[in-house]
Design a protein around this nucleic acid. Structure first.
Lengths: 239, 239
DNA sequence: CGCAATATAAATTTATAGATTTTTTGGAAT
DNA sequence: ATTCCAAAAAATCTATAAATTTATATTGCG
């Protein structure tokens, strides 16, 4: 017997996957701006790779809803809009409410422990790297995702979980795109704690209500961020 | 002014899209059997096209859940199993119940008319082309899809509708794969009529219940079809 | 003599480079 | 100002090359 278990995933290590990861990060972070055209020449030079792996990556990202493809006229970074943000948030509230209810209905001690653990770990990491200005903490983001994944992880449907993941990705991009210095005023840690408590107490109505409010509050902050949306506050836009 | 409006979609006409359609049809019909390996050489010869459009099509089909890709060892037709059929059906019931409730909550006269029309058209087309043996009628399948799409079309979420579409596709493949001579015994037309009636009367609980039963009944028939699943009824399978 | 491990060969996936269409752009003519 | 045409840019596709995986055969050891 060996002490170290054999790696079940011996590292993908195909260029397509590598470029996919890099592109994805640049899309989510906003380094590739919404509605920007993704020309092959630019991409091959920037990411130092051929067209085949790039096409592969772009197609996957299209499925993720981060890239848009128009027949015979190339790939584009998916555009953003207030309408889409509202619709994505609405959908996420609906679908995760469903998934959370089903998870709670199929609850097990292991699942509850997993949830408690995920919330604890999240609570021990600072939301921002800097105390003065808001600076995204990748570790927090990672644990945040794990926590929300755990909430719905017991629902018993891989496809539903995957769909929630897609919605989470798309909404994550909106968060990163938004300047939103307003976040520090919120006590997201408390919100997570309240959700966990509701789940553990078996009060699914309350848990769902808190979760939806959690998402809605985030969306409301971003919706008010004039910087990321074409701020047509006045009236019409001149040509 | 012209009498005929300019076509908004001037026909995709890229080889990738063309192969995508053909492959999709062959996957859904079962001509490409579950878990079969999709080798490039076979594909290029069969579909008379190059690797680039094929890769593009295969990647899109992977996103649709009809094809599976394993890093560096090629593409495979998605395998089928009783477990997956059950999970997909369960998920579809959940998600379409949600979408139907939201559609009804946002109901308009136009939507109700659209639904009535879709059901009427569906009722006027025979389920089977042949009266003696069961023979799939493409026109019925098309109208059936339109009807179910109409049911959830008012929910106000493009992403949710798209997700329902994916589940519908995957489950459609199970239906085609199953021999299921048992269908004629069911009166699916009556089931659709009952659903429509419940929707029009505003009874969302009943509508959702009928819709779920509709899907569950279909799944139950296929689950009993020993032909499409590795029938390990006895015990183990010898090597 | 049989089994296991290793090295070699074949097949297949992945990537690169170049050719072919298609769309877009800019300018000239109506 | 609008339409038409030609040149340029860009996307799509084919063909070829490189890298990786799977299969086969050979060698070493129990």
């Amino acid at each position: 017997m060996e002490l170290t278990a054999a790696p079940p995933l011996p590292a993908p290590s195909t260029q397509a996957s590598h470029v996919y990861d890099r592109l994805r990060e640049d899309l989510l972070s906003g380094r590739l701006a919404p509605s920007r055209k993704l020309q092959m020449r630019f991409l091959t030079e920037t990411y130092q790779t051929g067209q085949t792996p790039l096409r592969e990556a772009l197609n996957r990202l299209t499925a993720d809803g981060l890239v848009e493809v128009r027949e015979q006229r190339g790939f584009y970074v998916k555009d953003v809009s207030r309408a889409e943000l509202a619709e994505l948030t609405k959908t996420r509230c609906w679908v995760e409410a469903l998934a959370l209810r089903e998870s709670m209905a199929a609850s097990t001690p292991q699942w509850e422990e997993q949830l408690v653990l995920a919330q604890h770990r999240l609570s021990r990491v600072p939301r921002s790297l800097s105390a003065t200005a808001f600076e995204d903490n990748p570790e927090w983001e990672k644990l945040h995702r794990v926590y929300h994944r755990a909430l719905i992880g017991q629902c018993g449907s891989q496809s539903l979980i995957a769909f929630c993941g897609q919605l989470a990705d798309q909404l994550y991009r909106y968060r990163r795109l938004s300047i939103s210095k307003a976040f520090p005023s919120r006590h997201v840690g408390d919100e997570h704690a309240a959700i966990t408590e509701a789940v553990l107490s078996g009060d699914s109505d309350l848990a769902v209500k808190l979760l939806a409010a959690h998402y809605q509050r985030t969306a409301d902050v971003i919706l008010q961020d004039e910087a990321i949306f074409p701020e047509l506050r006045g009236e019409a836009h001149r040509a």
